Simulated assay, not measured.
Amino acid sequence: MIKEKYTIKDIAQMAGVSKGTVDRVLHKRGKVSKHAFEKVDKVLKEIDYKPNPIARNLKRNKTYSIHVLLPDPNKDPYWIPANEGIIEASDQFTPFGILIRKYFYDPAEKSSFMEQSEEAIRSRPDVLLMAPIFESESQVVLGQCCEAKIPVVLFNNHINCFKEQIFIGQDLKQSGRVAASLMEKIIGKNDGIAIIHINKEPHMQSKENGFIEFFKERSDSKHIMVSKTFNSAEKNCFNHEVSQFIKSNPEINAFFVTNSKAYMLVEAFQELKKDDVVIIGYDLLKPNIMHLGQGNIKFLIHQKPKRQAFLGVNYLAEHFLFGKSLPPHEFLPIDVITSENVHYYL
């Protein structure tokens, strides 16, 4: 049943008081006699009156600022969908007084991260929505926000230093366990496994921990596991390091890549004429999707960066507009993508 909408005039007539009295009761301003308050309060309870927070904010010309700190999508394509999610949320909530400002930093430069974070904090936002990839620097930023009394919400990457911080993204350790479960199903009992970090970020260690934990719990597991970090700044150097790693570890033919750069490992193997490998990675970047279709990558785990960013803004906007409480964490589903179902996600 649709509830009838009541105006201040309607409530005043039902309570037998003036519109000014109802306005003072609703907005808790000015003096109202006890008798008049009781009459208005009785009517409000009878009609189950709920104020419209959006209308109230528009009337008061109240605005809230959400500053978003994230890696530059022009420098790392993984962040393109995240930027799209922020734009989509901004289009939805800007008309209601939610002002969103983005600060892009170079994901390869810690100084860029600090410069952009300082600029974001200097503007005194109501909240900072942040995707951190530098652990110690992010801890500094969180401390600065705490001193400035600026709440922080994290998405995509979690920093384990402030327990009260809100996080939106995947359960990173559990996603590593999912990858291990997939790996176990498609390799031999004695095959060696490499956990590959390309441009390692703090959250990748959580994935590695989950991956290793899965196999440790299996008493019959005989897999040799090696963890290796590569830097992708120079392609020739990257390919050379991969080549050296393969020569030093000939027993390894299964690879778990902990971020969106699985395609780089595939391309290095193609140059080395090495095709007897199993690769599991993350994220729906175009080259990853291509190699998934060609069978060079067996599985991709979808981290939903666009959904993460959109939800971050959405939860904050609804908190400001409707007074909704913020969840301490929002873990998104861990979707396993294959060549057979990838088109449903595009």
Rank of each mutant, 00 (worst) to 15 (best):
M1I: 08
K5W: 07
K5E: 08
I8S: 10
D10A: 01
D10L: 02
M14G: 02
M14I: 11
V22T: 05
D23Q: 03
K28H: 13
S33F: 06
K34R: 11
F37N: 00
E38L: 05
K42G: 01
V43K: 03
L44H: 00
L44M: 02
K45S: 02
I47G: 05
D48V: 04
D48H: 08
D48N: 09
P53A: 00
P53C: 00
L58S: 06
N61Q: 14
K62R: 08
K62A: 08
H67K: 06
V68S: 04
V68R: 05
V68P: 13
L69I: 01
D72L: 04
D76A: 00
W79V: 02
E84S: 08
G85Y: 09
A89W: 09
A89D: 09
S90W: 09
F93L: 07
F93Y: 15
Y103L: 07
F104D: 14
D106Y: 12
E109L: 09
K110C: 12
K110N: 15
S111D: 13
S111M: 09
I121T: 10
D126M: 07
V127H: 13
L128M: 11
S136G: 10
V140Q: 15
V141M: 13
C146N: 15
V153L: 15
L154K: 15
F155N: 12
H158D: 13
H158A: 12
N160L: 15
N160V: 09
E164I: 06
F167V: 10
L172D: 10
R177G: 13
V178D: 13
V178F: 10
A179S: 14
E184S: 14
I187W: 13
I195R: 10
H197W: 06
H197G: 05
H197P: 00
N199A: 03
P202S: 04
Q205T: 02
S206T: 00
F211I: 01
E213T: 01
E213N: 01
F214E: 02
F214G: 02
F214I: 02
E217T: 01
S219T: 05
D220L: 03
S221N: 15
H223C: 03
F230G: 02
N231R: 10
N236G: 04
H240V: 01
H240A: 08
Q244H: 05
N249E: 04
V257R: 10
V257G: 05
T258W: 11
K261E: 08
A262R: 09
Y263S: 10
Y263D: 08
L265N: 04
E271S: 07
L272V: 03
D275Q: 11
D276V: 06
V278M: 12
N296R: 12
F299Y: 15
P305R: 04
F310H: 14
F310M: 11
F310C: 08
L311R: 11
G312H: 12
V313S: 12
N314S: 08
F320S: 00
G323T: 03
L326V: 00
H329P: 00
H329V: 00
L332T: 05
L332A: 03
I334Y: 12
Y344T: 03
